[in-house]
Computed example of a mutant assay.
Amino acid sequence: MIGILIPAHNEEALLGDCLEAAIIAASHPGLLRETVHILVVLDSCSDASAAIAEGFGVQCLHVQARNVGHVRGVGARHLLNQGVRWISCTDADSRVAPDWLVAQLALGTDAVCGTVTVDSWDESFDRTAQIRYHQAYQAHDGHRHIHGANLGVSAGAYVQAGGFEPLACHEDVQLVRNLERCGASIAWSHTPQVITSARLDSRAAGGFGGYLNGLLQSV
């Protein structure tokens, strides 16, 4: 079994597209009909996120934390208790490629750190800031980016590394650093594709949206 883990806080605008893409990836013929559990962990949601997730028939957990590291950790434990061998993480404002799971597993490593492609730029993110982003971003194999929107890890390596820590941001970075310390094999790959939003009002302070805001302010 494989698990897809999606944290969500008030994501009614984008969650439907995220789940539609995840369901397509979970049905890819390359998985040879292996069971895929899609789990949305709804954190302090006051909008229609829960109704949207339930409408897609995926698993849902409700927490009141406002802490993405805690949320991912709760979700990962839930999936591990269901017996998954691999956990693939993405974000509620992102859309995974149809072959996302197949591409992660085909790399044959303990973990996969993938890249992201920005869907469309916020109108306030001007051309100069976009150029700065593309100059700094390594959209190729061997990159060193870490995105919770495109991250996969085997159950064994995840447990050995101690899992997601309850951090308000960069819980994904901390997990990868712990995986490295444990000697896990990690693929830094551009192959598993994920499209993500370029919104500047990110749900987790210091996350991808915070990075984009920093680029904008440095122009």
Rank of each mutant, 00 (worst) to 15 (best):
I23N: 05
N10E: 11
I24Q: 14
R66D: 12
G69Y: 09
L5W: 07
I23L: 15
A51H: 06
A22F: 14
H9L: 09
L32K: 14
G73R: 05
C18M: 06
V40N: 05
L15N: 14
V41T: 07
I6W: 06
G75I: 00
A53L: 08
I23F: 05
L19G: 11
A8G: 09
D43I: 10
L42H: 08
I38P: 00
R33W: 01
A21Q: 01
L31S: 04
F56E: 02
H28R: 02
A51V: 12
A76D: 01
S27I: 04
H9C: 08
L14I: 10
N10C: 13
C18P: 11
A65C: 07
G73L: 05
H37Q: 13
A65E: 04
V71A: 03
A76E: 00
R66W: 10
E34V: 00
D17R: 15
C45W: 11
N10I: 13
G75W: 00
V63R: 13
A53Y: 04
L61H: 02
H28I: 07
T35L: 04
I38H: 01
I6K: 01
S46T: 15
E34I: 01
S49F: 00
S46L: 06
E12A: 15
R66A: 10
L32N: 13
V71T: 15
V71L: 02
V58T: 11
N10S: 07
A22N: 12
A65L: 06
I52M: 05
E20M: 12
E11Q: 09
H37S: 14
V36C: 10
E54T: 08
D17I: 06
P29D: 09
I4Q: 00
L5I: 05
S49Y: 00
G55I: 11
A48R: 15
L15H: 13
V68M: 03
I24M: 05
V36Q: 03
I38Q: 04
L19I: 10
E12Q: 15
L5G: 12
I24N: 02
A25H: 03
N10R: 06
G69H: 03
T35D: 10
R66V: 07
A25Y: 05
C60D: 02
L39E: 05
G16R: 11
V68Q: 05
V68N: 11
D43L: 08
S27P: 10
C60R: 15
L15A: 08
T35C: 02
C45H: 08
L61Y: 02
A48Q: 15
H62I: 07
E12P: 01
L61G: 08
I23T: 06
G73C: 02
C18E: 06
V58C: 10
P7F: 03
V63G: 06
V71W: 03
E54M: 08
V36F: 10
D17M: 09
V71Y: 03
V36D: 03
H62P: 03
V36N: 04
A76Q: 00
P7G: 07
P7T: 08
L39G: 00
R66C: 11
